[in-house]
Design a protein around this nucleic acid. Structure first.
Lengths: 195, 195
DNA sequence: CATTTGTTTGACAAAAATGTTAAACAAAAT
DNA sequence: ATTTTGTTTAACATTTTTGTCAAACAAATG
């Protein structure tokens, strides 16, 4: 008989991603995940054998998703500025939905430096860095190591979302006030990085 | 008899901070901490009664340190540009030594939303935001909500350090190459935020 | 409709992490 | 030197988290 596909396996994985990436609960237990998914904890072992394997799978898919997003955005042949706007749109949207995704990835990498990580790397980075260099040479953006340009971009997009709990307190933001402020950033970031 | 102060209590706390803030091992156990400190795990309970209390204390001190750093930097009466340069110097240095400090803070906040957190807030933010506004009015920096200005600043400083494990792979950096690149950022950030 | 097979569940078992106790130890005080 | 008191340790106990198993269940198949 073929798999019945009740959707439970996917539900568990999606719930795990929500807890880790969206809620930032990096210490979540298998029970936490099962409860949040509304399923018996044993199912987690039925489908994934162990917590460790679930984590590895979540890790791998997040990594591949990230790489895919990067490649898609970078290889599109929009004019440079449109390309960057698209990049900001794609990654800011992702970061709003899953602010702690990269934090999870890094935490996992640091906590088991021994294990083999996903080998796949984004393929289009080199040519994209070259394209950035071209734009700098043309005087459209401030000259610097193109790597800095990209790191700046991601920093400006993601960090305010990761640090929301701290920044809200520091600057006395309400939840909705913070969301409004984040929404202003799409334009703002664009203005910052083009001279 | 007074406390003998063998330095063990401080050693445990410092080691915990190193593991959490510098090494980013957010899942470290009490045994991990004790081992890294070279002491018997029981001492952790002798001095702090529970892991939870140790974590709370580490959290509190990190929060107060952060607030103290902010206040010190913001209330200094250097001319604005020097003040910002000093801010970058202070916070980038801290971030190089303890890149995962804020990640730890946020993770703790998210994992026990119920517990009471440190009430103390930086006192000097309001006046500093006002000063930023003044500089914008004077045309020294690009006009925007001063909060954005500060968030941009911290994003550009801290995020590349948090994401080092990912960025290193993405951009094919060696460890020392990455350090060199980070060191370039002090100047770069300054150039980015002043027009 | 009975059987097969994949899914779900609860009860149980094992492992890991945290917490406790009493005794050993060492520095200071008497 | 002996006692006192704070520190450290090992052995043990508890709790939490993870993992296993067999039985119950339900959908597809013959």
């Amino acid at each position: 008989m073929a798999l019945r596909d009740t959707g439970t396996e996917q539900l568990i994985k999606d719930t795990a991603k929500r807890i880790f990436f969206a809620e930032g609960k990096l210490h979540a237990t298998t029970q936490d995940i099962a409860d949040a998914a509304g399923v018996n904890r044993t199912l987690l072992h039925y489908y994934f054998r162990s917590k460790d394997i679930l984590i590895q799978q979540v890790f791998k898919e997040a990594m591949q998703g990230l790489n895919a997003r990067l490649d898609t955005v970078m290889e599109s042949d929009l004019p440079f500025k449109k390309k960057i706007e698209n990049l900001i749109d794609v990654f800011l949207t992702e970061a709003v939905a899953f602010p702690y995704q990269e934090t999870f990835l890094v935490t996992e990498i640091l906590n088991d430096s021994c294990r083999i990580h996903d080998e796949s790397k984004p393929q289009k980075i080199k040519s994209f860095l070259a394209q950035i260099q071209t734009e700098m040479d043309a005087g459209h953006i401030k000259p610097m190591n193109p790597v800095h340009f990209l790191m700046n971009l991601f920093s400006l997009m993601v960090y305010p979302l990761i640090m929301a709990p701290l920044f809200k307190e520091m600057f006395n933001f309400s939840d909705s006030g913070y969301t409004d402020m984040i929404n202003e950033r799409k334009k703002l970031i664009c203005e910052m990085i083009f001279k």
